[in-house]
């Protein structure tokens, strides 16, 4: 006698914001990841755009809510309201644009200021884009070193055009998120979600997954 309960998983939802200078390829990064497509001539983003995608990291399916932002400074008032509640922040720069690399730090600062995160270990990931280009001016060593020493953020090199490391980058970002210590309230709410997403099979009388609430134990 099997149960008749329909269990519906609810994936943990992670909000990911992609930041970086104009024309470093933020939208391309997102489009490659979400729809596996690439266009040489993506229009510049105005305001914010938003796509969603499931990603399986170490057996847990996460729903990534990816927010693509406009790179021009002038649009700051438009993008900063969306920083709040972000779980992961991708800081991007293009390897053929030294300026974009230099502003990575400013982006991080802007993010920290407007996201109002209290988390000292907020998960950042620095993503170098366009590594397929031949005229790169930011070397891997330089960027890597600077990221680890100064930003203490992991660094990954990608190319949306050749689909290099795109999924890896997002997977890495989720892993960083999963491994960082964060304020307890967050942990708890996510624990709940994770538990829900795994139905406990085999118990005949009680088919539903139990919600592990902080109260029990």
């Amino acid at each position: 006698m099997k149960n008749k309960t329909i269990l519906v998983k609810q994936n943990p939802i992670l909000k990911v914001v992609i930041l970086g200078n104009s024309n470093v390829g933020k939208s391309c990064l997102m489009n490659r990841f979400v729809s596996n497509s690439f266009s040489d001539h993506t229009l510049h983003t105005l305001g914010v755009e938003f796509l969603q995608k499931e990603l399986n990291v170490n057996g847990i399916v996460y729903t990534l809510q990816i927010w693509d932002t406009a790179g021009q400074e002038r649009f700051r008032t438009l993008r900063t309201p969306f920083y709040r509640g972000t779980d992961i922040c991708l800081l991007t720069f293009a390897v053929d644009d030294v300026q974009s690399f230099k502003t990575v730090d400013s982006w991080k600062k802007e993010f920290l200021q407007y996201s109002r995160t209290t988390d000292a270990n907020f998960p950042f990931l620095v993503v170098a884009t366009k590594v397929d280009l031949e005229n790169r001016v930011v070397s891997k060593d330089e960027a890597n070193k600077w990221c680890s020493e100064y930003l203490s953020a992991p660094y990954v090199e990608t190319s949306s055009k050749t689909d290099m490391n795109i999924e890896t980058a997002f997977t890495l970002a989720v892993e960083i998120w999963a491994s960082t210590e964060r304020p307890s309230e967050l942990k708890i709410s996510h624990t709940n979600l994770v538990k829900l997403s795994r139905p406990i099979n085999g118990s005949a009388a009680c088919p539903t997954a139990e919600i592990v609430s902080p109260k029990c134990c």
Binding site: E73, Q99, T103, E110
Partner: peptide, 17 residues
């Protein structure tokens, strides 16, 4: 970065490093 004009944060003194 002083040498080059800052593309994005030109008037963004707040977080100028």
């Amino acid at each position: 970065s002083q040498e080059l004009s800052n593309d994005v944060f030109e008037d963004n003194i707040n977080f100028s490093s």
